[in-house]
Amino acid sequence: MIGALLVTAIPSFSQSLPQAPLPGQQIAAPSSSDPATYLCTTQLQRAQNAIHKQDFPAGIDAAKTGLAACPEQRDLLLALADGQMLSHQFDAASETLHTLLTKTPDDVSALLLLGQTQYLNAHDTDAALSFQRAIAAAPNNPEPHYWLGRLDYQDGNVPKAMAEFQKAIQLDATFYRAYDNLGLCYEALGENGHAMENYVHALKLVYKNHPDYDDVYLNMSGLMLKLGNSQKAFDLAAEASSRNPGNPRSFFLAGKALEQAGQSDASLKWLKHAVEMDPTYPDPHYLLARVYRRQGKSQESKEEAAKFKQLSDKAPKIMR
């Protein structure tokens, strides 16, 4: 048997979205003689902690409370926009960032966050302009090249995307997300050997130093499934579920690996977890329909097939 279901507490939040980097500068240490500074610093810390824990409403509220005492304070505006973007309040996040960029048009953190907001809102042309502005303001920063690569990859321009990811790596040889996405590009070109090399490089970079990063484990798991290596695919997906228990894709891929290996009963546990975590995720329903059909449960199979079709029709064509 390939493996047993990991016993992990699963938070209700199930979406995986790219986090905008919070600025490195810190507000001055709180001073009891300066109540406003103390309040702003405290609320910034609360906002950042809440957003890190994916409690976006609490993060937004904390940032707004801080801004009431310190209007237009840079770090609080960035935290507010981060929480708004991650809770899909794209227009509000853009408005917050434009407020900041009106005063400091070359603020790289704000430009990157604005570009990510536009990217997630499918405003690709605007996003590209924001990332290009970030490059002009900070030519040695790899982040905007990475995000331009993401845009190109999703537009199907794989060679251009590869050039952007390679530029990011040239600027920062430890940029693990660029290696991960370079692997996706090689995989799209059918060059699985080169894809594997880049996935493995990214895995080495994140294994200890970035314990929350799970994307490369999932991308490599998907490649292992294509190559028919169910054991390796399961191991990678299970590790991803441990690193980020809130991502239903890891549970889906683990269930898919078990189903591919002929372990239908075990796969049901993982697939059902994926559905519980994100009821709008179509793919687990497709596999559940197939598993139930193999088990002779025709009614359950039909129900899952119908759910898959219904959710697939509503799902965005491009996952960002």
Rank of each mutant, 00 (worst) to 15 (best):
L77F: 04
L271F: 06
R294T: 09
P57I: 06
P142T: 02
D283E: 15
E187P: 00
S264E: 11
A240C: 07
V206H: 01
P144E: 02
A237F: 11
F13Y: 09
L113R: 14
Y186S: 02
L227Q: 15
S301F: 08
P142V: 03
R46D: 05
R243E: 12
P159R: 07
D126L: 14
A257N: 09
L120Y: 15
R46H: 11
S267G: 06
H123C: 00
Q19V: 10
K256H: 12
D75S: 13
H210N: 11
S87N: 13
T42W: 08
N181K: 02
M277Q: 13
K269N: 13
A92P: 04
L5R: 08
Q15D: 09
R293H: 13
Y213P: 00
P30F: 08
N198D: 15
P142I: 01
N192F: 13
E164K: 02
R249L: 12
L86Q: 12
F308P: 08
V291Y: 06
I60R: 13
A63R: 10
L100N: 07
A137T: 04
H98K: 14
R133N: 12
A306N: 10
N49Y: 05
L288W: 11
S312Q: 15
L171P: 02
K64S: 13
G262A: 04
Q73I: 09
A257R: 08
G66K: 05
K103L: 08
K307W: 05
N209M: 01
V216I: 09
L6T: 11
Y146W: 03
R150W: 03
F252C: 00
S109D: 15
R320S: 00
L129P: 00
E259L: 08
D180C: 01
Y179I: 01
A289H: 09
A274M: 11
L80F: 08
A238S: 14
G156C: 05
D283F: 07
P248R: 05
L271V: 07
Y38W: 14
K167E: 05
D214P: 00
H273Q: 14
C185M: 07
Q19Y: 12
C40P: 02
P159E: 11
A68H: 10
L101D: 07
N244V: 04
E95N: 12
S264R: 06
K53S: 14
Y119F: 15
L86D: 04
N198H: 13
Q84P: 08
A138F: 04
Q231G: 02
E259P: 00
Q299W: 00
A178Q: 03
L86E: 05
S16L: 12
S31G: 12
D124P: 00
P245F: 10
P248D: 11
A68V: 06
H145I: 02
Y286I: 01
Y179V: 02
K103F: 06
F131M: 03
K314S: 13
L184K: 07
D172H: 01
W147R: 08
P159T: 07
A36Q: 14
P282V: 06
A163H: 05
L218G: 03
Q299V: 13
I2D: 03
F13L: 10
Q299N: 10
D61E: 15
A163K: 07
A9C: 04
Y281W: 09
N49S: 15
P23L: 04
D278P: 06
G83N: 05
K297V: 00
K167F: 01
A92Y: 00
S264T: 09
G83L: 04
Q84Y: 07
E276C: 00
